[in-house]
């Protein structure tokens, strides 16, 4: 099993507040890793360290190393544009651009310089097929993306993320704004996507973490309390705090 991210002694501060403390973790290629923990425990902050999204927040200080394919992404000469292309992100609320379905998907490739219409058309078809939406929307690619249902919008956002051929997809509660049917579609999709991509997902839904992920990491007060195979975490966690959290005794 290949390691995609190797995180060592990661500390993150918002000003004087320490949000992440001494995080050591491996994230494996083509596996789904779920990050769970109560609100404010640092899991979303951690997720954003994986594509340097925290750089955009003022007053953030980061220590330690985050190696992506063996290279420290916080090293002085690391190409952040390349990193963000390889490590895509999907957010809690579907956030398609106020453009057509087609334009949403080709937006990334165009920014990266792709102008060939046939290539762009192929990207649209490939990514919409990857998110199981092609049949649903192939006849209305020029319609506004905002006219799609919430679940479709979220799958479009995943397709948009796939359009730049990333290696990793970071997902921050990607189904918390969706109904059970749309949630189920996204969850079904994750398993297929994991064949090609490495997925890290933040979720508050314990059952979802149990259903979709291979590994689960429990965060509390900025620390990783326990990481193990998901089946172990949800049937027999080693740490009492993990047990208390996932059984709803606190958090």
């Amino acid at each position: 099993m290949e390691t995609k991210f190797e995180i060592e002694k990661l500390n993150l501060y918002y000003g004087s507040f320490q949000a992440l403390q001494d995080i050591d973790m491996n994230i494996y290629s083509n596996r789904i890793t779920a990050l769970i923990g109560p609100s404010g425990c640092g899991k979303s902050t951690f997720l954003r360290t994986l594509n340097r999204m925290n750089d955009l927040i003022r007053g953030v200080t980061i220590e330690g190393t985050v190696k992506f394919d063996g290279e420290d992404i916080y090293g002085n000469f690391y190409d952040i544009i390349k990193l963000r292309k390889k490590v895509g992100m999907v957010f809690q609320k579907p956030n398609p651009f106020p453009k057509t379905i087609y334009e949403n998907i080709v937006y990334g490739p165009k920014i990266h310089g792709e102008k060939n219409k046939t290539v762009l058309d192929n990207i649209v078809e490939r990514t919409l097929k990857e998110v199981a939406m092609w049949e649903e929307v192939k006849d209305r690619l020029q319609k506004p993306a905002l006219g799609l249902s919430g679940g479709q919008q979220q799958r479009l956002c995943i397709a948009r993320c796939l359009a730049v051929e990333p290696e990793v997809i970071l997902m921050d509660e990607p189904t918390s704004a969706l109904d059970p049917v749309a949630t189920s579609k996204i969850e079904g999709l994750l398993e297929e996507l994991a064949e090609k991509y490495t997925i890290v997902i933040v979720t508050h839904n314990m059952q979802q973490a149990g259903r979709v992920s291979d590994y689960t990491s429990f965060f509390l007060n900025g620390k990783v309390i326990e990481t193990d195979k998901t089946e172990v975490i949800f049937s027999n966690p080693a740490n009492k705090k993990t047990e208390e959290y996932i059984t709803g005794r606190f958090g």
Binding site: F234, S235, N236, T242, E243, I246, T247
Partner: peptide, 9 residues
């Protein structure tokens, strides 16, 4: 209730 861990066992 969808029990987990100790509750599930």
């Amino acid at each position: 209730q969808q029990p987990l861990a100790g509750d599930l066992r």
